[in-house]
Amino acid sequence: MNGTAIDHVKLRIPEDGVGDALAFYRDALGFGIDGMDLYESGEKPFFSVRLAPGAVIHLQPEGSTTATDGYDHVAVRVDETIDGLERELDDAGVDVDRRLDPLGATGVAPAVYVTDPFGYRLELKAERE
């Protein structure tokens, strides 16, 4: 078996957290939202944050859920310099929890960590310097 990329991650969010999710993932981070029409019509129990053409985060509103103890983070490669990424986050009012140069699937690259409204941590890893 030879894996090539992360296809998706599914996170449960509070039932009343849809607005917060859209404000963070769509409005602040600038990611696209897929499947909102199917979610709103009741045909699908979740909607998706489009991270890249082949990668999404499924968000499923459900009860009063919070981030679990076993979860650490989702790493997302972004086509930005680290300085540009930090400026975009600052302009959007998103606090950077920390900045590191972690080892990932494509090697060591600068990254920032942010936390979504539900306590889930995201690593945003710069693709270029």
Rank of each mutant, 00 (worst) to 15 (best):
1 M>N: 01
3 G>H: 02
6 I>W: 03
8 H>T: 07
8 H>F: 08
9 V>A: 11
11 L>R: 02
12 R>Q: 11
12 R>L: 11
13 I>S: 07
13 I>G: 08
14 P>Q: 12
14 P>I: 12
15 E>D: 14
15 E>G: 15
16 D>V: 10
16 D>Q: 14
16 D>T: 14
17 G>Y: 04
18 V>C: 10
19 G>K: 13
19 G>A: 15
20 D>C: 07
21 A>K: 06
22 L>E: 07
22 L>F: 07
23 A>D: 15
23 A>R: 15
24 F>L: 02
24 F>S: 02
25 Y>H: 07
27 D>A: 08
27 D>M: 06
27 D>G: 04
28 A>C: 08
28 A>D: 06
29 L>N: 05
30 G>S: 09
31 F>G: 07
32 G>I: 04
34 D>T: 09
36 M>V: 06
38 L>E: 07
38 L>A: 06
38 L>C: 00
39 Y>T: 01
41 S>G: 00
42 G>Y: 00
42 G>H: 00
44 K>Y: 05
45 P>D: 09
45 P>V: 05
46 F>P: 02
50 R>D: 12
52 A>E: 06
52 A>R: 11
54 G>V: 07
55 A>R: 09
56 V>C: 09
56 V>W: 13
57 I>N: 04
57 I>S: 04
57 I>K: 02
57 I>A: 03
59 L>G: 09
60 Q>N: 09
60 Q>K: 13
61 P>M: 07
62 E>R: 09
64 S>F: 04
65 T>G: 06
66 T>D: 07
66 T>R: 13
69 D>P: 12
72 D>R: 14
72 D>T: 14
74 V>Q: 06
75 A>E: 08
77 R>V: 02
77 R>E: 05
78 V>N: 05
79 D>A: 13
79 D>K: 11
81 T>N: 05
82 I>W: 03
84 G>M: 08
87 R>W: 09
87 R>M: 10
88 E>K: 15
88 E>V: 11
89 L>I: 12
89 L>G: 14
90 D>N: 14
90 D>W: 11
91 D>Q: 15
94 V>A: 10
94 V>R: 11
94 V>Y: 10
98 R>E: 14
98 R>A: 11
100 L>P: 03
102 P>C: 03
105 A>H: 02
106 T>C: 00
107 G>D: 08
108 V>M: 07
111 A>S: 15
112 V>K: 01
113 Y>G: 02
114 V>C: 00
114 V>A: 01
116 D>V: 01
117 P>Q: 01
118 F>W: 02
120 Y>H: 12
121 R>S: 13
124 L>I: 04
124 L>P: 01
125 K>G: 01
125 K>Q: 11
126 A>H: 10
127 E>M: 06
127 E>C: 03
128 R>C: 05
